[in-house]
Design a protein around this nucleic acid. Sequence first.
DNA 1: CCAATTCCCAGTAGTTTACTATGATTTACA
DNA 2: TGTAAATCATAGTAAACTACTGGGAATTGG
Lengths: 154, 154
Amino acid sequence: MKLSTKGRYGLRAMVDLAVHETEGPVSIQSIADRQELSEKYLEQLLGMLKRAGLVTASRGSQGGYRLAKDSGHISAGDILRALEGDLSPVDCAGFSAEPHCKSAGSCVTKYVWRRLKEAVEDTLNGISLKELASKSRSLEEKGEQNASPANKIT
Amino acid sequence: MKLSTKGRYGLRAMVDLAVHETEGPVSIQSIADRQELSEKYLEQLLGMLKRAGLVTASRGSQGGYRLAKDSGHISAGDILRALEGDLSPVDCAGFSAEPHCKSAGSCVTKYVWRRLKEAVEDTLNGISLKELASKSRSLEEKGEQNASPANKIT
DNA sequence: CCAATTCCCAGTAGTTTACTATGATTTACA
DNA sequence: TGTAAATCATAGTAAACTACTGGGAATTGG
């Protein structure tokens, strides 16, 4: 039940992108520097986010990434779905397209998975990038007057 | 963000145990037969559930497992925590004991993880084994009149 | 005693994760 | 027009993890 680094790093990258939205295309390098992530790995994540239609890229010198839509219309759920795949905690909690298990009719655990899935999606869909960006900006301000000692990456 | 088979199989085993609560100790073999799971693997899961204080075991002939408490006082959250470990989607969403990341003060994503964790725990803690067992019993009744073709295990 | 059990620990094939490496392609700007 | 700065695409890989399997000891009811 753990999120992978794709989701964790990717969400950080998207918040970074939202915070620097006004400054023109944001390069992978600048995100990697600020967030202390591997450039090469970020490249892959941004690729996924692009394919999911959440960011657009401009190539060549002075190029970089931008949000594809207003940050108010991108949710944490959108981002994590793009990076982690379906947010359902099990494959059978979803829709009818899936192969049915023998005991589909008498499967109680499915009820649990469905409720869990709903809870996860509802909370994640309810958090917008806009909200996160503005929170991040106000946290940064506070953080600047007391330089905190470095330690570990999350 | 997927649950492993530990959580999925283990929850099924616990529901099975709750359904057959009145029949004395339930052996691994009988659970494995009904749920179509590997005996050897189940053995491990029951071991974890025992160590977590959710079931008790009696050894020897006629032995088996029972619920350690009333099924109304065991939640899906209890079971999944025992089998999957902490239900938090990331390691940093929890408490103060953890190592702080560099940007702990300005870490917005932590806010997301904390809300997600709360949603997961709240829903899972809110589902009791008693509820699941009674649901399972009524589903079984319905299932018996229309024998459904087997297909795949979840 | 014996058969049915739980208990314990070790091994292992396969998959996934979290990167790294290499190199091609595109583009602004001097 | 040349070059540096970017994205884009694909492949490789060490380490960790998953989902088991196997062997055998310990316990207990009949």
